[in-house]
């Protein structure tokens, strides 16, 4: 399966959409941590220099200052790499954001494998886990520009804490222009009846779709569910997937602990949906340098591994019979 590519990387699309929104809404301000040129938000700075604040290399202060700005009625969009937007400012996100019930949009770029050029230090494999442990944060993992275009206005307009995992340089086109997405509702990227692959983000949704193609060659019909809102999780979509396809495989660009796979497992267990279930992702290990394809292959996360895992789950389903 070959994907088209967009002319704009996701970071540039993100800036373009933010600039459009900021032209209409003077409350939107941007804070970055000496990464304006990496985040693509330099374009926002060019358009709105008086509403862009480069904090320097100080993520904790950036998150705290955003809490203060929010309390004054502004809508701060703050950026760092996902590793630092989570690990480096967890207490500030909690105390100055969540606990103070503020309105901050946290942009964490290049989660997981996306930052493998910088290696294990910069690969956020735990950012979703950190964020989903705190109440009232919506976690969003956009798949492509079309989705970002559809959901970013709602993220800005909805009061509250948001964490956006954005793969900066991805330009893969997964969805046709104009497709609408609803925050909190999973999107069926591909229909299927034998198993559901629940995936997130610009790296794993394409891999899941490639795997679904391969599975089709093998006579297995795989549904691909794009769970771009990781929290709050679309429980109904998970329940339907289990009931309608009888097997579930998650695919996330994150540690399999505390991320999408864990969230789905919680629903399956709580709903007594004892279907064959598996998780694709970093298996509680550290990251390393390498290209994205190398990382995905090495850590067992590419389309080939997803295909094998799905095949196995479908065979278990046949052996066990229906248990739901």
């Amino acid at each position: 399966m070959q994907f088209k590519t967009s002319t704009a990387a996701l970071r540039d699309a993100n800036s373009r959409i933010l600039i459009d929104l900021a032209k209409k809404d003077s409350r939107i301000v941007v804070l970055d941590s000496d990464l304006l040129n990496a985040s693509g938000l330099a374009a926002f700075n060019k358009e709105f220099p008086g509403r862009t604040f480069n904090c320097g290399i100080q993520e904790a202060n950036m998150a705290g200052a955003a809490g203060g700005l929010s309390s004054m009625g502004l809508i701060p969009v703050i950026h760092s790499f996902a590793s630092f937007a989570s690990r480096r400012m967890t207490d500030q996100v909690f105390m100055s954001g969540v606990y103070a019930e503020q309105n901050i949009k946290i942009l964490g770029t290049d989660p997981g494998a996306a930052n493998s050029a910088n290696g294990g230090t910069h690969m956020a494999l735990e950012d979703t886990g950190i964020m989903r442990s705190m109440p009232d944060i919506t976690i969003v993992s956009p798949t492509d520009e079309t989705m970002l275009e559809s959901i970013l206005p709602g993220i800005i307009e909805t009061y509250g804490m948001f964490y956006i995992r954005l793969v900066r340089k991805s330009s893969i086109v997964v969805y046709e222009a104009g497709t609408n997405f609803t925050l909190g509702k999973a999107h069926i990227a591909r229909p299927g009846t034998d198993i559901t692959i629940i995936a997130e983000g610009a790296i794993m949704v394409p891999e899941a779709l490639k795997a679904a193609d391969r599975l089709e060659q093998l006579g297995i019909s795989a549904r691909v569910l794009d769970m771009f809102t990781i929290k709050p999780l679309d429980r109904e979509a998970v329940i339907s997937a289990a009931r309608e396809t009888g097997a579930v495989l998650t695919a996330e660009n994150h540690n399999i602990l505390n991320g999408l796979g864990s969230a789905v497992a919680e629903v399956l267990a709580e709903e007594r949906l004892a279907v064959p279930f598996g998780r694709i992702g970093f298996r509680d290990v550290l990251g390393q340098t390498g290209t994205v394809p190398y990382i995905l292959e090495t850590y067992g996360m590419d389309a080939a591994h997803i295909t094998e895992a799905a095949k196995k789950l479908v065979s278990e389903k046949v052996q066990a019979g229906s248990r739901i």
């Binding site: 604040f53 904790a60 202060n61 950036m62 998150a63 705290g64 200052a65 955003a66 809490g67 203060g68 700005l69 929010s70 309390s71 004054m72 009625g73 502004l74 701060p76 207490d91 500030q92 909690f94 105390m95 100055s96 606990y99 103070a100």
Partner: peptide, 19 residues
């Protein structure tokens, strides 16, 4: 503003003053 985790008020105050 809510406080309690030390050090954070300084950033909150800076953000409020900027706001």
């Amino acid at each position: 503003i809510s406080t309690g985790s030390l050090g954070q008020g300084s950033s909150l105050a800076a953000g409020i003053a900027l706001g």
